[in-house]
Design a binder for these strands. Sequence first.
RNA 1: GACCCCAUCGUCUAGCCGGCCCAGGACACCAGUCUUUCACAUUGGUAACAGGGGUUCAAAUCCCCUUGGGGUCGCCA
Length: 465
Amino acid sequence: MKVVTRFAPSPTGHLHLGGARTAIFNWLFTRHHQGKFYLRIEDTDTLRSKQEYTDSILASMNWLGLDWDGEPVYQSERFDLYNQYVDRLLESGHAYWCSCSPEDVEKMREEARARGENPKYNGCCRDRGLRPSPGNPEKMVVRLRAPQTGITVLNDMVKGEIVFNNAELDDMVLRRPDGAPTYNMAVVVDDIEMGMTHVIRGDDHVPNTPKQILIYQALGAELPIFGHVPMILGPDKQKLSKRHGATAVIDYEKEGLLPEALVNYLTLLGWSHGNDEFFGLEDLVREFANGRLNPSPSAFDPEKLAWLNHEHMKTRSSQELAELVAPFIKALELPLPAPEKLLPLVEMLRERAQTLKDLAAAMKFMLIDAAQMEYDQKALEKTITPESRAHLAALRSLFDGLPEFDASGLHDALHGYVEGNGLKFKQVGPPLRVALVGALAGPDLCQVMSLLGKEQTLARLTKFQ
RNA sequence: GACCCCAUCGUCUAGCCGGCCCAGGACACCAGUCUUUCACAUUGGUAACAGGGGUUCAAAUCCCCUUGGGGUCGCCA
């Protein structure tokens, strides 16, 4: 059997982490089985759907490296199709017209609730045999004539067998008075039409599934295999929301994450393959079917994501990182050095950064001019004394006289100065670092000076005389 | 309230068709090593089978109950 899946976002916001993960699972599953992976934009809610969000979602999919087959399908363009199916149901007697108003139905629900029952529509129009008449065609909805007894069984790929009592389900609306399909109707029609073999989605859809199965059955259509993956929770184990900070894929792109790291991390949330954790995209495609989907929800941990990103950064060449970090340097409004100047900076600093944004920020002191230097106040107080100023002045003229301004020459000069004057490195190193870097921590001093260049190094030292 | 799902270290998890597990890995945390500092790296450490009943020679692993967490109950998707 050829696998066919889809990712079906509704364009009411950017692609968020939860959506991204269901997209990833579908994509991995499909690519592993060499099937077809489609994109379907669920934009039947014309009020909340926005083109800019569709664009943003597609852009995030591209960024993540998730390609899809064919052109995206827009539900808003397929109302005629949905109506054909609704009409079929009407003709076969699996659906009926209902003239109850939303208020009427709300009242029924209240009554059911008061009785301690599942709130639902009471089926009062079921056997009235209503037909739209010229007088009030627009007021009628179409409902499914759902079985009132028996059970509906969902055989889920990740959760196993889930049994629902049909008595708990009601006659759901399939078509609104304005002719628009409801969500469950549109989804089922599209999944049938598009030949879906597997429907993998968030487990917030579990309660929808028996309703959809009922529609499949009324239509006499074959069921796809369902797989409901648990939700992603915030670090506090609560439902992930804006309250938790960055929840959209685009936020992580802006934070300087590598797309393969985000994919790797999101996949690990709910999927596992023994004790293995580091996976490239190809590894995931190859191993996905050999792993295991966890039925329990998992909490999102930004720290582990950052660690994993660092691991992925290790696999990129400095050349690649230099290209990737450039936009982040610009975003920080720092001058972008020429490629041959940028490369050694990346090499010097890459181990110290967990993200591209970190890397750009770590470069700041190397990219600005002596006049723009900012100094950590505590570091200044701790290291800059009349005595250390004298050392810095001496070093300045020592370095000035160097024939070659390279790391090894600087190293020899620096250590020669320390030893020649019977000093401890601690008396010279920290003040020198503060003068050059602006803080007490940073990369190797001699490397810093050689990359800064003679002019800039001397200018920074001059400020402390 | 009704229905459904879930339950191993703080977090992600291995294990879960029972014995090799007084529970393994990773992140985080703590300590040591390395180092001119910081970081990286590396070594070691703290830390969990929610509780109670069964079944069994044997249970983290199977069953039941309790508790806790989550989801859904729209003419939204």
